[in-house]
Design a protein around this nucleic acid. Structure first.
Lengths: 133, 133
DNA sequence: TGAAAAATGTAATGTTATTACATGTCATTT
DNA sequence: AAATGACATGTAATAACATTACATTTTTCA
C-alpha cells in the first residue's frame, strides 16, 4: 500500500523546520517558520523552502494549497500514501488529516472515467470543527 | 439545488476580466489578466482582484488554489452549487470542471462524521488528460 | 435630487516563492 | 590523504501573488 520508503536521516535544516512544524498546532507559512528559526541562524526564505521541499518529498510534511502553508504529517511513520484530504477549521486553524481509502478510490474512478492519469490530488475542506461550532 | 441566484449585470471591469477568462483555454493568474487588459486602461492589480472577487462571488469564475489562477465557470448559466472538483492537466494546462453529486455527498458525509461544519471544498486533481497522455 | 452604497483609480506595501551563484560537507574511490 | 561527485547550505536579488489605504466617480433608490 505505502509508496514512501523509509526516509533518510534528516539534515540539520530539515530537522529544524520539521521540529517547528511538529511544535505548532496549526499550519505555518514558510515565512513564519523563518521567523521562528532566525535565532538558530536562518537568514533567508530559501533555507526554509529547501528544507520544506525535502520534507514534503519524504512525506513528513504536507502543503495546504488553499492556505499557502505547511503542516507536519500526523501519521507517525509517514509511510502511507498521500493523505486523502484535510479538514481545516476556519476558527482555530486546526487541521485534521484524513486517510480515507474510499475517497481516494472514488477520485481515482472519476479520473479514469475521463481517461485522466492522476498524479496528485488536493482535497481541502474548510469549515468549523466540532469544538469551534 | 442551486445556491446562486441570477447574478447582476456585470460592471465594466468585471465584464472585461470575464471576457479575458472566457477567451482563454487555460487558467490565468491575476497578473496575466492585468497584462492583457493594459490596453483597455488597467493599471493596477487591484482592478483585477476586485473584479475577480465579484465574479467568484457570482459563481462565474473559480479560483484554482493549487495554481493561484482563475478559470471561467464552464457551466453556461452558472447557477449551480460550487463545482465538486477540477481536473488539471499538467501538460496542456487544460482544466475540466466536474459536478459530481456523489463526490460532494461523500465529502459532506466525511465532514459530518467528525461533526465538522463544511463551508467550502477545494478538490483539484492533477495529472495528464487523455489527449496529453 | 440627494444620500447611501457600490465601483473605480492609484500608490504603496505586504506576502509568498524562485533564480542565480558561491561555498561547504561528506561519502566513495583511488 | 587527495580527488571526485553528490548533496546541502549561505546569501542576495528578484519574481510572483495579494492586500491596505485613501481619494474619486458612478449607480442605486428612497
Amino acid at each position: 500500500m505505502g509508496t514512501h520508503l523509509h526516509h533518510p536521516t534528516l539534515k540539520k535544516n530539515q530537522q529544524l523546520v520539521q521540529d517547528v512544524l511538529l511544535a505548532s498546532s496549526s499550519p505555518l507559512s514558510a515565512y513564519s517558520i523563518l521567523d521562528v528559526l532566525r535565532d538558530q541562524g536562518f537568514r533567508a526564505p530559501l533555507q526554509v523552502y529547501r528544507a520544506l521541499d525535502k520534507l514534503v518529498e519524504f512525506g513528513l510534511v504536507h502543503k495546504l494549497e488553499s492556505l499557502n502553508a505547511f503542516v507536519a504529517c500526523s501519521h507517525e511513520e509517514c509511510e502511507l500514501d498521500e493523505p486523502a484530504a484535510f479538514m481545516i477549521c476556519e476558527t482555530c486553524e486546526g487541521v485534521s488529516e484524513l486517510n480515507d481509502s474510499k475517497l481516494t478510490g472514488y477520485l481515482g474512478k472519476l479520473a479514469s472515467k475521463e481517461n485522466f492519469t492522476l498524479k496528485h490530488t488536493t482535497v481541502e475542506l474548510h469549515g468549523l470543527c466540532s469544538n469551534c461550532e
